[in-house]
């Protein structure tokens, strides 16, 4: 049972990571900096609870805000580059963040032990949940409460005026600009929101694993972050959730019995999934079908739409 609760926690945290990339991707920016924002959230959140003795909730909120501010600052220079150049630039930023934490040493003496981030050795003993006697199920519920909050916020944003404007920028910047949209405002705020979400996820991750180190926040994590929304399809936030469940639940955990063959199959299955559903697991027609199904149950008049 604990195994499945643990899996639910991982899926929740990775969903936040994927959603942070989703928000940015909506405006047409392919960012590999999300793992960097995630790392900032993890370290800031961990330091606030461990060193400053904060509650995890307030520590997580501040971690999200710090990551959001950094992401906003990254958003401005990111405006100047597009496509592959943006991928390169954001990868470089993510690596810079990782190397910063590789060299980041800030330990204080508590009793007869040193606590805090310790460069390459990482940051151990982020034990807010354990020290306060949270059960694994309470931790999972806490994580999923945040995930659902973020999912709902993005769902609402997607369907609001701002969401339409964001997608318009993602489609064609010149046309959006000619429709009176400020590209700067849209892209930078998307980057900032993505940073906040990644920061929240990072803070939860730090408290969930209790031990973080620079190597966890490398290019691989950044690739996962961007793979979730792309594999899920950009039609709906639920696509990202579906992709995380598919990758973390099915590919990473479900195929564990295959041993070393798993890694081989992992890549092959992602390629297969992209071939079978080139527009993502939940593409426009799947979302439309879902919605028809829902309205059929509500009104019993789905045929009226068709």
């Amino acid at each position: 049972m604990d195994y499945y609760i643990g899996l639910a926690q991982i899926i929740g945290i990775h969903t936040l990571l994927g959603l942070s990339a989703y928000a940015v991707l909506l405006t047409g920016q392919v960012s590999l900096a999300q793992a960097g924002f995630f790392a900032i959230g993890a370290y800031v959140g961990g330091m606030l609870t461990v060193l400053a003795g904060w509650h995890v909730l307030s520590g997580m909120i501040v971690a999200g805000l710090v990551a959001g501010v950094v992401a906003t600052l990254v958003g401005f220079p990111a405006l100047r580059v597009k496509g592959l150049m943006l991928v390169v630039a954001t990868t470089a930023f993510g690596e810079a963040v990782r190397l910063f934490f590789f060299n980041f040493n800030y330990r204080i003496r508590r009793g007869d032990v040193l606590i805090g981030p310790s460069g390459g050795e990482g940051f151990r003993q982020i034990r807010f949940f354990q020290e306060n006697g949270w059960s694994t199920i309470e931790m999972a519920l806490f994580i999923w409460a945040i995930v659902i909050l973020v999912l709902a916020t993005l769902w609402w944003l997607d369907r609001s005026r701002a969401g339409t404007v964001w997608r318009a920028v993602g489609e064609d910047e010149l046309a959006a600009q000619s429709a009176g949209v400020s590209i700067t405002a849209v892209k930078v705020s998307a980057m900032g929101l993505g940073g906040v979400i990644a920061g929240l996820g990072g803070a939860l991750y730090a408290h969930n694993t209790t031990h973080i180190e620079h190597a966890q926040f490398g290019v691989v994590l950044a690739t996962f972050a961007i793979a979730y929304p792309i594999l899920g399809g950009l039609t709906s936030v639920l696509g990202t959730l579906a992709a995380v469940v598919f990758i973390q639940g099915f590919l990473v955990e479900g195929l564990r019995f295959l041993g070393d063959w798993r890694n081989l199959l992992f890549g092959a299955l992602i390629v297969l999934a992209m071939n079978l559903r080139p527009n993502g697991l939940l593409d426009a027609s799947a979302v439309a079908a879902l919605r028809r199904g829902l309205s059929f149950r509500r009104k019993g008049a789905a045929h009226a739409r068709a």
């Binding site: 339409t164 997608r167 318009a168 489609e171 064609d172 010149l174 046309a175 959006a176 000619s178 426009a284």
Partner: peptide, 10 residues
């Protein structure tokens, strides 16, 4: 625009 520029997927 000379060559139409709409938001194709909207």
């Amino acid at each position: 625009f000379q060559n139409i520029r709409l938001f194709q997927r909207l």
